[in-house]
Design a protein around this nucleic acid. Structure first.
Length: 478
DNA sequence: CTGGGGATGGGGCCC
DNA sequence: CGGGCCCCATCCCCA
């Protein structure tokens, strides 16, 4: 016979004891504020505490103390309240920090709730959008006041009492690792600029799919687990680690959910609003939520203060753990590089096509293959070509080589170098000849329009000038 | 539908 | 610590 209410009553009792500082044998110091708690409860709730307490458990007579600097007392209070009550008080303002702290403390329960919170905020964003349009269409003359408590309830995890959420693969490595260092992130305005550039990319669908994968969201083209990457960290990456890029993508578009609460139970799944499928949706969403986006930007702006690098020690080997996934690297610089895949930061734009890259080398590679036709290989027959046996064909902003035979076969051998067409791209003959690759944002639209009219342009291949051209053509990559 | 190849992105590591 | 190279996985396009 089982009394189902017994565990919760026990937890209530423990919570009461905590509040009255009864039998507390553990002190947690967070930025000068002391929290009292029970070892047993902390041990059972957090992988971090489990490791910490198992190391210090030999001396049970001494009270255990732990000190944290990487999150605020308020954040820890939210987590501690969750540990003792199963209730997680999330708001739009604290969700990121709570999730980050939970990641550090290895409390995947909380991470899951935070993730769902953020996901469902996107759902709310869509509802808000619908409501916005609805108001626009029907209630333009109405008072337009919003129900302040539209989403005000509290997030609760009631279905499961706090329990151990060990992340075995990171558990050991986390012990003693508590140094955080700030990382560089784009400001909100920079991000807006980047985002607008990103929006213009033609491969958005690809990135959305990819981000869905990062989120662990189901998708039709998802690869089976067995086909995952060679590196175990991706395969083993828990799906409850929301990627920051995704998180930000969502937060950028979401409504103001700060100060609002949400009712959530783990048992009743809150279906995440899937990522916006198209640019139109994305942008209409953005425009619909324009008045609210500043809040999301504020939220983003707060991230640099709460995101960081966890240094941890495995034996004598210092390694750095990504706060958003289980990936660990040996060098800070590698972590910084890795973080770009979470932040979506793409600092290296291609001047020719506007496509942005996370790394300079990728930009260079892209530019060489797409815009410079550096490969001395005929694109059609794959044979090796020289400047004697082939020519460079330009198609839009793409360049590639064709051997003379394939040129004849394609019937484009008679097309001369179309200087007029090149000028039609918006460059005067006086301009640097290479500046035709410097398509800025202002040229891009024109470029697309003109691309068809440009057609194929053949230029003489001069391999000897390739290096020179490389430098001139792409000053920002050399 | 499928396989091949190009483009892209990410990790490890050397300089 | 940044730059760069190499390698590999994945995606996408095309035959």
């Amino acid at each position: 016979m089982e009394i189902s209410s017994r565990p919760s009553r026990l937890l209530q009792q423990l919570n009461e004891q905590r509040r009255q500082d009864l039998f507390c044998d553990c002190s947690i110091l967070v930025e000068g504020k002391v929290f009292k708690a029970h070892r047993n409860v902390l041990f059972a709730s957090s992988g971090y505490f489990k490791m910490l307490l198992s190391q210090s458990s030999k001396d049970m007579s001494q009270p255990t103390t732990a000190t944290f600097h990487m999150f605020s007392p308020d954040t820890f209070m939210v987590i501690l309240d969750f540990v003792y009550s199963g209730k997680l008080s999330l708001t739009g303002q604290n969700v990121i920090e709570v999730m980050s702290a939970a990641s550090y403390l290895q409390m995947t329960d909380i991470i899951s709730v935070c993730k769902t919170f953020i996901k469902s905020s996107l759902d709310i964003s869509e509802k808000e959008k619908d409501r916005y349009f609805s108001l626009s269409e029907k209630d333009l003359n109405s008072n337009g006041t919003e129900s302040p408590g539209l989403y005000s309830t509290e997030w609760r995890v009631e279905s499961s009492p706090p329990h151990s959420q060990m992340d075995s693969d990171v558990g050991v490595s986390m012990v003693g690792g508590n140094s955080w260092s700030n990382c560089t992130y784009y400001s909100a305005s920079q991000r807006n600029t980047q985002r607008s550039n990103l929006i213009k990319q033609t491969q958005r669908r690809h990135s959305i799919k990819k981000r869905m994968r990062q989120l662990g969201l189901p998708q039709s083209t998802d690869v089976p687990p067995g086909k995952s990457r060679k590196l175990g960290d991706r395969a083993s990456e828990p799906t409850n680690h929301i990627s920051q890029s995704e998180e930000q993508t969502q937060l950028d578009t979401e409504v103001d959910f700060a100060d609002a609460g949400y009712q959530h139970g783990l048992g009743s799944e809150v279906l995440p609003r899937s990522l916006l499928e198209t640019q139109q949706e994305y942008e209409s969403s953005r425009s619909a939520n324009k008045s609210k986006s500043s809040k999301a930007d504020e939220l983003y702006a707060s991230m640099p203060t709460i995101l960081g690098v966890m240094g941890s020690w495995i034996e004598d080997d210092v390694r750095f753990k990504c706060p958003f996934c289980t990936h660990m690297v040996k060098r800070k610089a590698d972590l910084k590089r890795h973080l770009r895949c979470h932040t979506g930061e793409r600092p290296y734009p291609c001047e020719a096509c506007g496509k942005r890259f996370t790394r300079l080398e990728h930009l260079r590679s892209h530019f060489r293959t797409i815009h410079q036709a550096c490969k001395p290989i005929c694109r059609k027959c794959k044979r090796h070509v020289t400047d004697m046996t082939g020519q460079v064909v330009q198609e839009g902003t793409r360049r590639y080589r064709l051997c003379n035979e394939c040129l004849v076969e394609a019937g484009i051998e008679s097309i001369p170098i179309d200087l007029e067409a090149e000028q039609s791209l918006g460059f005067s003959p006086e301009e640097d000849k290479d500046s035709r690759w410097h398509f800025g944002e202002e040229h891009r639209t024109k470029e697309v329009v003109e691309e068809d009219s440009v057609g194929l342009v053949i230029q003489e291949v001069d391999d000897s000038e390739d290096e020179t051209e490389k430098k001139e053509v792409k000053p920002n990559i050399s």
